[in-house]
Design a protein around this nucleic acid. Structure first.
Length: 580
RNA sequence: GCACCCAUAGCUCAGCUGGAUAGAGCGCUGCCCUCCGAAGGCAGAGGUCGCAGGUUCGAAUCCUGCUGGGUGCACCA
């Protein structure tokens, strides 16, 4: 159920009727006709721009169209008023029974807010995809939270979503990891070692080195690198992925699949993807110009195999093979995304850190080329997280020595606070994360404020049960909602009516932060209604000795809690039953 | 030098993809608990939406050019 979609349907049907009776000419496109909440609630419940959109193509005065449309709409029993305003807006007011019916619908439809917008299209959301060389840090945390919430949102909006982690286990950084683990392995045998520049000296590898000792004893202790590198690579990256998986579990993130870069090698998929591009005339041998204004010191012209990404919107062509013939990192990335297209995904989303902004165009170019423009790729960049403690910039880590880990953050403030707070900002805006503020219990803190609203409803319901009132959903659904007649109550129902519409807007824009802001607004409405009870006893939720009215009022706030719980569910946050 | 992102109240940020008088929190001023949780609520003050043009019935939103900030710029991943 989506009231805005319902009323838009009514507007479209009325326009059709106006065409049929000759008020409007035939063949008008109604795609741009919208029905939305007016900016100012005093204008009405819903506003449509139909008259303004159609005025030009119909060669008519917008007010003339609006007047005729208003007359048609008023024939519908749901519409109580229709006024033309401003340049041609048509403001509609709906009968109270419509809003009362909405509350009933929420209580009887567990899926209220879910949408078929996605039409079950196959959607791949790739996120985190951190190199398997250590624990996840704060930056990864934001990407993980964002990607996970986006995936849940799309799922909620009717897409068939796959969450995937791409493991960059094919490159030289895994060799570095293996050598670092080897050093820890030597240390486990009481060998004193030196840590070369660029190795990974983090404490988290100590246990890996010791575990390796348990497994292989002293077999590799004095062996040359070529005897142990391959095995330790394997062993170490497995260990790191175990670590990463458990980090993600701390955040409540569960991937549908992990896709290994290494698994691409030797399968011919890279070669196949490149030859696919070659067949489209997009692969050639050539030499790139040095970047202007920033000449690398060791620049020398090299002939390489290049992908003509400029044919698909990139600024320069990109190398897929090094001058020695080995694949660049870009080649397996192309193959991986080629694989996504081959696996039948209708749409792709990649979530990258902002430092990967330079790869967006080339990845889009590759996907565009490989799918003949049929599979859209949206790349969402998550901006930096700035950490604060007591208002001061905060860095350092207990474990890793150089960076703050995901685990540090979750240990300090918890999964729910971490997730919600990281979603109260657009992904492309930098985020301040203050360890003190995010756990503060005040309305300055959206996490708390929304949780408080949910807990408040639960609290009232517990009180009601104590007073002997049946507040089961089945009973509430049968309550006499005609008793919800006060403007303040209807206003809350109106906010609830926006939920399905908001889900669609957020899903279309790939913007989960909209959910968080909506929940804050909804919580605010609930707190407001609560306090109205201070001045006006008739607005208190519990009405002594009047079960029918109490149940109607609780039906309303129970609906609020249902929507808050649904929204928090999308964000991956557990609704609070009570505040402590 | 080029590309991408950002610029909205004193501060931190929303703004429903082009709609009406641009919103919220913090801070500031003044109110509201014999009452289901005041961990809240109500009201007030506070704006040239970075600047200058353009597109049209209509622009914070789209286009162009500036200014200021962030990020990234062959054979690393």
């Amino acid at each position: 159920m989506n009231l805005f979609a319902d009323i838009r349907g009514l507007v479209i049907a009325s326009l059709d009727a106006m065409v049929a009776d000759g008020t409007l000419p035939e063949g008008l496109a109604t795609g741009a006709v919208s029905v939305e909440p007016p900016r100012d609630a005093t204008h009405g419940d819903m506003a449509t721009n139909a008259a303004m959109v159609l005025a030009k193509p119909a060669k008519m005065n917008p007010r003339q169209i609006a007047d005729a449309l208003a007359a048609k709409l008023l024939l519908d029993p749901r519409v109580s008023a229709a006024e033309v305003a401003g340049p041609g807006f048509l403001n509609l007011r709906l009968e109270a029974s419509v809003w009362q019916g909405l509350v009933n619908a929420i209580l009887t439809t567990p899926t209220y807010g879910q949408s078929d917008l996605g039409q079950n299209q196959k959607m791949m959301v790739e996120y985190v995809s951190a190199n398997p060389t250590g624990p996840l840090h704060v930056g990864h945390t934001r990407g993980a939270v964002f990607g996970d919430a986006l995936a849940s949102l799309l799922d909620y909006a009717g897409y068939d979503v796959t969450r995937e982690y791409y493991i960059n286990d094919g490159g030289a950084q895994v060799d570095v990891l293996a050598r670092s683990v080897y050093l820890r392995y030597q240390e486990a045998h009481d060998v004193t070692v030196e840590w070369p520049e660029g190795s990974y000296p983090g404490d988290y590898l100590i246990a890996v080195g010791e575990a390796l000792k348990e497994k292989v004893g002293d077999k590799y202790l004095n062996a040359p690198e070529d005897e142990w590198l391959a095995e330790i690579r394997e062993y170490a990256s497995e260990a790191m992925m175990d670590l990463i998986r458990s980090d993600l579990a701390q955040l409540g993130v569960v991937m549908d699949s992990f896709y290994s870069e290494k698994s691409l090698y030797g399968t011919g998929l890279i070669e196949k993807a490149i030859s696919e591009l070659d067949a489209k005339g997009l692969i050639y041998r050539g030499t790139l110009e040095p970047p202007k204004g920033k000449m690398p010191e060791d620049w020398e012209p090299r002939e390489q195999t290049l992908f003509k990404s400029t044919a698909h919107g990139d600024d320069v062509d990109r190398p897929v093979q090094k001058s020695d013939g080995a694949w660049t990192y870009f080649a397996p990335d192309i193959a991986y995304h080629y694989g996504k297209v081959q696996r039948g995904f209708d749409q792709l989303i990649d979530v990258f850190g902002a430092d990967h902004g330079g790869y967006v165009k080339r990845m889009k170019a590759a996907v565009s080329a490989l799918s003949d423009g049929k599979v859209p790729l949206d790349v969402k960049l998550t901006q930096l997280v700035k950490l604060y403690k007591d208002g001061e910039p905060f860095k350092m880590s207990k474990r890793a020595g150089t960076f703050v880990t995901l685990r540090d953050v979750v240990d300090a403030v918890g999964k729910d606070v971490t997730r919600f707070h990281m979603l109260t900002r657009k992904n492309d805006a930098p985020l301040d994360f203050d360890f003190d503020k995010v756990t503060e219990q005040s309305k300055d803190n959206p996490v708390f404020y929304v949780q408080y609203a949910h807990a408040r409803v639960k609290s009232v319901m517990r009180k009601a049960v104590d007073a002997g009132v049946d507040v089961s959903d089945a009973t509430l659904a049968g309550a006499d909602l005609g008793k919800l007649s006060h403007d303040a109550e209807i206003a809350v129902a109106k906010k609830l009516a926006e939920w399905p519409r908001l889900v669609e807007i957020a899903a279309k824009g790939h913007e989960p932060h909209r959910i968080a802001f909506y929940l804050y607004d909804l919580a605010s409405d609930l707190h407001g209604l609560w306090n109205r009870g201070n001045d006006d006893v008739s607005l208190r939720f519990l009405q002594d000795g009047d079960n029918d009215t109490t149940q109607a009022k609780i039906a309303l706030i129970r609906s609020v809690s249902v929507v808050i719980a649904a929204g928090l569910g999308i964000l991956g946050v557990t609704p609070a039953e009570e505040m402590r």
